[in-house]
Nucleic acid binder design. Structure first.
Ligand code: NAD
Ligand code: NAD
Lengths: 214, 214
DNA sequence: CCCTGCTTGTGAACAATTTCACAAGCTCTA
DNA sequence: TAGAGCTTGTGAAATTGTTCACAAGCAGGG
């Protein structure tokens, strides 16, 4: 089984988004060229990405939109519902909990946790903020394999260790700090300050960069 | 002038974060090995990254923490203040506007814009929400070179075109859609649904991936 | 039924990035 | 001043990711 690059998975995700659009508009087929234009990549890249998982297209015609949508959903593991735990009932946590984009893709918020006694027990969107103490018991009862970490950097590693020990195998981290996890746990970090600093670098050193793409 | 990889810039940003920590703790020097461990990379990578910009270390000793911090700040363009415009006074916009991590690095929110008449004029953190109509005039008066886009995907490209026309040369986009800009404009997109889908893929296809790093 | 036009799937070439490996250089000690 | 012990800086090698180019294959028209 070949290793799939992270960049490939991100593109699959993007293909899916645009295929869903085309599908709801009733379009039957889409060529690699059309998909590439929609997603800001190249036709060869689209074909190569898809070819890792099978032959979904018809030569001369393109890819069947509806079928390919289903295939991509399966490849990405989106046929099922994923329960998501949000750790940290702060501003970022609040934005994420209400984010429509997650629910649309089958991610449902199974619980929100915080260690601030003033927040615990408060209603929070459709949920009620739960105490950190409840974490382990809740996980046994109803295991939520994806955790979103939205707490300050200081406590982040300790909470991650606890999540891992409790059986969580995927973590999306928003705290701006380096987190380490054992090899069987999947970790992704989003660091917004880093993105802004990338822009600062590009503006400051125009000579070092070529394109304005992203 | 050599092209600097995006991944290199991201790591520089991380080195800076940890060097600042070491500096406030009074540590004089740091070896590439120490930095690598802190940042989750390799010593060779640290040295190669830094070597693109000069020779900052002393053989046998390591890098002078305080000096290197200053160098990195300069390389990343962080000695100055960057004005940031937030477009979209919604949940994500609110979280970002109050994000301490931005101000710490010299990014200050110069204005928040929205097209919802109910939001325009309302106080919003320390600012007051301004109407989109005011954008062009405000930019002439006090040009803010970085814009953060926190509005729904539908209107995003149109607003970007308007920002570009008004002279904005760097955009951080949170709308989950493909945006195109002319070559002289720097665009970065953060797509959280894509990150979660990456985790879903990793959980679904454990055979395709090796490591749990990020 | 065959020919034309188009588009896929994919090995091979190419490009970018990371890792390796080691000479060069600094500091400290005797 | 010479030698030991570290650690940097950097070409070269290895690895990873992207682009090219074209044979193979399908559809529709004459
Ligand atoms: N606000 C943003 O735009 C933004 C952007 C990028 C990253 N971040 C990062 O996301 C994290 C959260 O940011 P925020 O703005 O939502 O902060 P916040 O202060 O609004 O919320 C943090 C919440 O986490 C809770 N908390 C703290 N320690 C905890 C622990 N050990 N266990 C459980 N809960 C704990 C606090 O009680 C609080 O409710 C921070 O690391 C921040 O750097 C924020
Ligand atoms: N909430 C999240 O966690 C989250 C996460 C990732 C991405 N996003 C994306 O960020 C964007 C904003 O999300 P949100 O949750 O803050 O939504 P929101 O509905 O809370 O806020 C959007 C704001 O943008 C304003 N707006 C809409 N169209 C506009 C236009 N043309 N010009 C100016 N203002 C306009 C609206 O009036 C509203 O105030 C969306 O594209 C969303 O998909 C949100």
């Amino acid at each position: 089984m070949k290793r799939i690059a992270d960049s490939t998975v991100r593109r699959l995700s993007m293909y899916l988004r645009y295929l869903e659009d085309l599908d709801t508009r009733g379009q039957q087929t889409a060529s690699s060229d059309e998909l590439a234009h929609l997603c800001g990549t190249t036709p060869a890249q689209v074909r190569k990405d898809l070819s890792f998982f099978g032959s979904f297209g018809k030569r001369g015609l393109g890819y069947p939109v509806h079928e390919l949508t289903a295939h991509l959903r399966e490849i990405l593991g989106l046929q099922r519902e994923w329960k998501v735990l949000i750790i940290g009932a702060g501003k970022i946590g609040a934005a994420l909990a209400n984010y429509r984009g997650f629910r649309q893709r089958g991610f449902t918020v199974a619980g929100v946790y915080d260690n601030d006694p003033h927040k615990v027990g408060q209603p929070w969107g459709e949920a009620i903020v739960r105490p950190m103490d409840a974490l382990e018991a809740d996980l046994n009862r109803d295991d939520a394999p994806i955790a979103v970490l939205a707490i300050p950097a200081e406590g982040a590693q300790a909470v991650v260790d606890r999540l891992v020990k409790a059986g969580v195998r995927a973590i999306l981290n928003f705290a701006p700090t380096q987190i380490t996890v054992p090899p069987h746990v999947n970790l992704k970090s989003v660091n917004m300050a880093m993105e802004l600093e990338g822009l600062s670098f590009a503006l400051t050193n125009p000579g070092y960069l070529d394109e304005g793409a992203a």
